[in-house]
Design a binder for these strands. Sequence first.
DNA 1: GCAGCCCCATTTTTT
DNA 2: ATGGGGCTGC
Length: 730
Amino acid sequence: MDLLEGLNPQQRQAVTCAEGPALVLAGPGSGKTRVLTHRVAYLVREVGVRAGNILAVTFTNKAAREMKARLSHLLGAECEALTIGTFHATCARILRREGTLLGFAPSYTIYDDDDQQAVIKRILKEMNLDDKAYRPGAVLSVISKAKNDLIGPDEFVPKSYREGVIARIYLRYQQALKESNAMDFDDLLTNTVALWQEFPDVLERYRSRYRYVLVDEFQDTNAAQYVLLKQLAAQHRNLFVVADEDQSIYSWRGADFRNIQRFREDFPEAPTILLEQNYRSTQTILDAANAVISRNTRRTPKRLVTERDRGTPLVVHEAYDEQEEGQYVVREIQRLVGEEGFRPGDCAVMYRTNAQSRAVEEAFVRAGMRYKLVGATRFYQRREIKDALAYLRIVYNPADSASLSRVINVPPRGLGPQTAEALFAWAGEQGISVWEALHRLRQAEQGDEPMAHPLSARAVKPLLAFLAQWESLVEESKSLDVASILQLVLERTDYQAYLNDGTEEGRDRWDNVMELLNVASQYASMENSLGVFLQEVSLVADVDELGDQPDTPVLLTLHMAKGLEFPVVFIIGLEEGILPHSRSSGSPEELEEERRLFYVGMTRAKDHLYLVHAFRRASYGRSAPSQKSRFLRDIPHHLTGGERRTWPTRPSAALRVEPVAAPKPREDARPAPPSAPTFAPGDRVVHPKFGVGTVVESRIVSDDEQVTVAFPSNGTKKLLARLAKLEKVR
DNA sequence: GCAGCCCCATTTTTT
DNA sequence: ATGGGGCTGC
Ligand SMILES: Nc1ncnc2c1ncn2[C@@H]1O[C@H](COP(=O)(O)OP(=O)(O)OP(=O)(O)O)[C@@H](O)[C@H]1O
């Protein structure tokens, strides 16, 4: 197969460019991922690079799987030797091998958010701090931010008293993790950076191993990830990155698209290759997406053309509420499948927040249709699943104190909060893991030299019984696979009896545990199946998606949609407060990121794009009128088929599409406040008489919008937008 | 120590 | 709405 077949000249140039660094900058659907994939194959097949010398970094595990699949097609068996994965997964693997140098046993545990919270809560108690003044979530976000910027607990410079306290928590937190032989997500990156910094010989090994490094979605790398890349590529300089600054949507996680600029400075010899041909979307979709993104100021405009024809207009639909919104989406999918020959799996429903999936799911259930929720870790968040995983994690890494604290009294065995607190505090004081503390307790009780400990005489017996039980489980598990271990643990803890309280919920919970066992058994034949299984679960490597791939509509967040494409896309909840989200509307930067998020969603669509908003929506149990998203106003009217809605006929009545004239806010009919301003401060506008000016302020006044505009030559004027025929200019 | 009850806040996005 | 956390009574 010719690797260059099916590539345009620009793409070929990128795929075949010489050794050394290179930057591919291009818009959505221009084949960035395809270029990266083909470049890998090209290096192996044409340049003769050994597959083992290539590292390709993707943004999600799913993307890694897809790339692997494509490369296995392009390269055959040789692709097995490639390293393809996310930064986190790759670092996790490196640290399994080399972590001992930093004081971590190979069986270290990756702590998830709950574990992290548990550790922080423990520390707050230890330090006598109020967990309301220092909310664990808030503390963790400060710590995470620091880590993403590679600021360790020692380098952390507090800018306030509060931050001083957090700095102390941070320090203790890192100790606690080490005592538990655990790392959090951010540690996977920072510890790898530290490893390579402190052990140049190790870095040297990885440099010669990963002689060619390729990074997808480079605009969403954070500082730690960028340093990792620099460490690896500083010498051989074979760093190939593809990026689109308009698709940078993870700044809240420390991602910084200015890494593109840094790359240019650090690798000045890198050619920049632009891809300007879009192969995905119709002209209409592209035009609409472009109208939306061009309102962002901090960007370099890109050229992007498509070979495809105009296609159909976008559909903008106003639903009554979130239920009717779900119903509309489901019926429209049924229609597309029934009348237009689409497959259910061609359709995707995208939303800003996970909570929004609920109403859509209910609509699917009511319609008797199957659907797939992407990236839903809900299953792994369930109590019974977390319990079962905690059991497994203890077997794998008994030092894991977070897991021990979770299940020390599950099922109840007389080790209540008092005892647990005493035990954990005692371990904390001594700077040892809880597991070790239990051993000391036994020593103290049964050894020759009695030792003081704070545990009540009554608690000692169940504690030692607990230790004995788990010691035996750890020992017996050594020769077993994950599935057998899980079965054994469930049996010994009598977990089924604990769940089975006679209620249906209890039955369901047990069913879930059996489902977990089913998933685990898919790993059973692997080498070190327990470790592999736990790692994949921790890295959210969508374990549940193994196997079944039904042809069903997909429900996913806009964030999860990055990098994917679908013939039919529904974006729902296009309302102020949701998209843009109220928690992200504070600064212009945040708003621009919300806009990019919408842009990413729109550009996933190949043929049909539906933009749906609801007239009213319930949140936190309260239903309130909503206001349509400002982003919808940026889409020129001629690209949409006008706005439609299916109510107020009767929300449950048969689908009836009634065209609705441009929204005219009538106070009696609409409790909603008047529409949002079309002009925002900073916008450049043109006035027939005064010329070009800059908007200073804009607010809604009765029926029109009063805009204050500063004209360089005519001073500042207050104008009514409609009357003055104000127009935006770019 | 533990089950049951009530109150309350809820930071949206994920590796 | 929902579940986690605090409180009460056994
Ligand atoms: N030269 C080409 N000829 C035909 N189809 C192409 C070509 N290049 C890319 N495509 C197709 O265009 C679509 C988009 O490609 P790809 O996902 O690689 O783009 P991308 O730039 O990574 O997109 P995004 O940034 O939006 O995720 C894919 O379906 C791909 O197969």
